[in-house]
């Protein structure tokens, strides 16, 4: 009897937690399919007539096609640069000995604990102005590239776990170090690269502060997060909650698809972050 109540309590807890965590997403999806009047009146939970037009309107009139396109470019671009930059550095740090290697590792780990918040964006922005990159897509991709941090350390730990026999055999056969990196190490790193790529993609897709600061005067370069938060202050006069929710759903759908497809890797990602 006592066991039964225990199990009942446990399931009550599990299901309440699940319901509360899903509720905001459910409300957002349902709200995005209502008219604005319906949404503000709030007389029923389900829409009276499903307003799929909200998405079309948001896509065209509220410029979400531009925002989505920008978000895709930044996320894909930053994921690729992050992977390339970190994989190369992790390979060199894990496989080669060179003066300054220890210093590099020490500085990289210290950087994970020194946070100046948004302050770092000010000098970085001025740097981009001097390089003439502050009004370009490339400047944003460079800024969003994670050059060290968790990505570097996960790949570093992973490459150190790969047996050196393979490199040495290839070296005896006369392979150069870039050949070893690209043909032996990288293919063996695929699982770690997948996890890190998800990590980087999520970070870039959801990034808000950095593109906000960089695209303040260039609305055409704004990604989804910035575009959406801007219409919170109302566009075309009135606040249009239903369109804001449609915009939020447009931002959530790609991440949701990736999550469903790559659920396992997502779970590994956080485990890796803890151990790395």
């Amino acid at each position: 009897m006592k066991r039964m109540t225990g199990r009942l309590l446990m399931w009550a807890f599990l299901l309440t937690a699940a319901a509360l965590l899903l509720l905001p997403i459910g409300l957002a999806v349902l709200g995005s399919l209502k008219t604005n009047q319906e949404l503000t009146a709030g007389t029923a939970i389900l829409p009276q007539a499903w307003q799929f037009d909200n998405y079309g309107y948001t896509w065209k009139e509220a410029k979400f096609s531009v925002y989505v396109w920008n978000s895709v470019i930044y996320s894909v671009g930053a994921t690729l640069t992050t992977l390339a930059v970190c994989a190369l550095a992790a390979y060199a740090a894990a496989r080669k000995t060179f003066p300054g290697r220890k210093l590099m590792l020490a500085v990289y780990s210290a950087m994970m604990f020194i946070h100046m918040g948004v302050l770092t964006l000010k000098p970085a922005y001025q740097l981009m102005v001097e390089l003439g990159l502050h009004k370009s897509v490339f400047g944003l991709i460079i800024m969003m590239t994670g050059a060290g941090g968790t990505t570097f350390f996960i790949l570093y730990a992973f490459i150190r776990g790969i047996s050196r026999d393979l490199d040495e055999a290839a070296m005896i056969d006369g392979a150069g170090s870039f050949y070893i990196f690209s043909r032996i190490i990288l293919p063996l790193c695929t699982p770690a690269l997948g996890v890190v790529a998800l990590f980087a993609f999520r970070g870039a897709w959801n990034n808000y502060i950095l593109p906000l600061v960089f695209t303040m005067s260039q609305p055409d370069l704004q990604p989804l997060t910035v575009g959406l938060a801007n219409i919170r202050y109302g566009f075309g006069g009135a606040v249009q909650s239903h369109l804001m929710l449609a915009g939020a759903c447009i931002s959530m759908i790609p991440m949701l698809l990736i999550y469903v497809l790559a659920n396992k890797s997502f779970v590994q990602m956080n485990v890796g972050a803890l151990k790395g």
Binding site: L21, L228, L245
Partner: peptide, 29 residues
């Protein structure tokens, strides 16, 4: 596990917009 982890994949800024509409005092969901 998939459900509990799901909120972490969405953008904080985007969810804050959604939460603004949910928690709004007048006509909040």
């Amino acid at each position: 596990r998939g459900i509990y982890f799901m909120p972490t994949i969405f953008s904080t800024a985007v969810m804050a917009v959604v939460f603004y509409i949910i928690f709004n005092t007048y006509n909040g969901l």
